[in-house]
């Protein structure tokens, strides 16, 4: 999976969770939850969807590494096939 494909998946999932937002406006270093106003339940739903589509299950201990779009992409790129 390429970084572009992963980005597309993440944007699609974010659009489902925050329908009124435009995830493509997110900058790589911005905190996804803060910018898109996603609560902890929405964030968990996002991670569940990501794990289902990419096969990468992100443990709670790694949450701090996936708060930004760039961090999330880096994290997934290292683990996805």
């Amino acid at each position: 999976m390429t970084r572009e494909q992963l980005t597309e998946i993440i944007f699609r999932i974010l659009k489902e969770i925050a329908p009124e937002c435009d995830p493509s406006e997110l900058l790589p270093e911005e905190n996804i939850r803060e910018i898109l106003d996603i609560d902890s339940y929405g964030f968990l739903q996002m991670l569940i969807s990501i794990s289902e589509e990419t096969g990468v299950e992100i443990p709670e201990a790694d949450y701090s590494r996936v708060f930004t779009l760039g961090g999330l992409l880096d994290y997934l790129m290292l683990r996805v096939y």
Binding site: L44, I48, E57, E60, A61
Partner: peptide
């Protein structure tokens, strides 16, 4: 809770709330 969630698949994780 973190210890509990470690044992669970992501779908069964429990939030602090």
């Amino acid at each position: 809770l973190e210890g509990e969630n470690l044992k669970r698949p992501i779908r069964e994780r429990i939030l602090p709330a």
